[in-house]
Design a protein around this nucleic acid. Sequence first.
DNA 1: ACCTGGGCTTGACCTGGGTTAAGGCGGAGG
DNA 2: CCTCCGCCTTAACCCAGGTCAAGCCCAGGT
Lengths: 195, 195
Amino acid sequence: MRFPKLFERLATLVPLPPEEWAKAEAVAKEQSLAKRELFMRPGDAADRFAVVLQGVFRGVRVSPRGVESIKAFRAEGELIGAYAEMLQRLPSMTAIEALEPSHVLVFQTQDFQKLERGHVCWERLARRVAEQHFVLKERREQEFLELSAEERLVKFWEEHPHLKGRIPQRDVAAYLGITEVALSRIMSRRRKRTE
Amino acid sequence: MRFPKLFERLATLVPLPPEEWAKAEAVAKEQSLAKRELFMRPGDAADRFAVVLQGVFRGVRVSPRGVESIKAFRAEGELIGAYAEMLQRLPSMTAIEALEPSHVLVFQTQDFQKLERGHVCWERLARRVAEQHFVLKERREQEFLELSAEERLVKFWEEHPHLKGRIPQRDVAAYLGITEVALSRIMSRRRKRTE
DNA sequence: ACCTGGGCTTGACCTGGGTTAAGGCGGAGG
DNA sequence: CCTCCGCCTTAACCCAGGTCAAGCCCAGGT
């Protein structure tokens, strides 16, 4: 077993026999990415995903008008991939970019489907993953509906303290749905208020 | 089989043996709701959900400050329930209210879990449901990130033409994340522009 | 026919964030 | 050492949307 920690983490979600995990490790490939390197680019087939072993990624979507917005940051132990597009069998509309030199464990969805056919535990895991992603997205929706940009900022750092210092400010802005200028103003406002 | 249409719809998502569906129908209860009646209120245990047979519902969340925002509208064939809270085993934080005299088919999550233990098809269905909900929420997130209120409005009516005339305008505003005043202004702006 | 209330509109005023453009600052490379 | 670049900040101006308040329209009830 090459990744016992990862196995443990997944086994807390769903009963996962070690021999099934061994099969998964057999089809997974490790990949290293330099800072700024893309794990996936828009237009790519959404036919693979990965677990982050080391590093931070951002999922970026560029709107027709050319505005970058950020769907999510992903760090150690989290999944990267164009999940929504994969489910809809569409080509990826997002770029997934390493913000640091990173290291990931890649799965082809095809291989994963083979695992699913072999044992229900994989389907159960996939369900758990879908449910967790849903809960996160709904939380974010709620934030857009009832919080101001400043409140969203505060909440962001409360919920992602491990990203402190690892992501540029402009990306935080693009995650919050505002410009870097607005974010800078919000921060100076807060500095003044509490100085 | 009391609800053959519903069975057909679900069977397109996942292979669903008719005898399993019969078991589901056996535990389901029909319920009628008057206009404005609540299917679920904040604080209720999130231990049941329903399929809408007739009518329209809104999922409302009231923020600590007392601002109502609307998470979703649900019409015929769709599910109602405090899904995120159910997954997290939390009490419901949303009210689900009938906007018309409505008719639903109610399941207790407990009963549904029993079905799941009896046949994998129910787990597969639950996975599909989670995935679809995720895709919808992600789409909405994207809209908040890259569209103006006016563009969100246009998109809303494109995607929900069947709700035309069935939901009050203030609720559309609360869904878009703006006030009814702002929505009214947007509409008059559009009227002028295209008159 | 008259009230009444709910839902929508409109106006006046304010604020937050977008846009554009001009610095500031620190680190990497010459 | 200086320069360049990437990243952040600040300022000036504009506009969308929030807030508060008044008014309109119309359906239902008496």
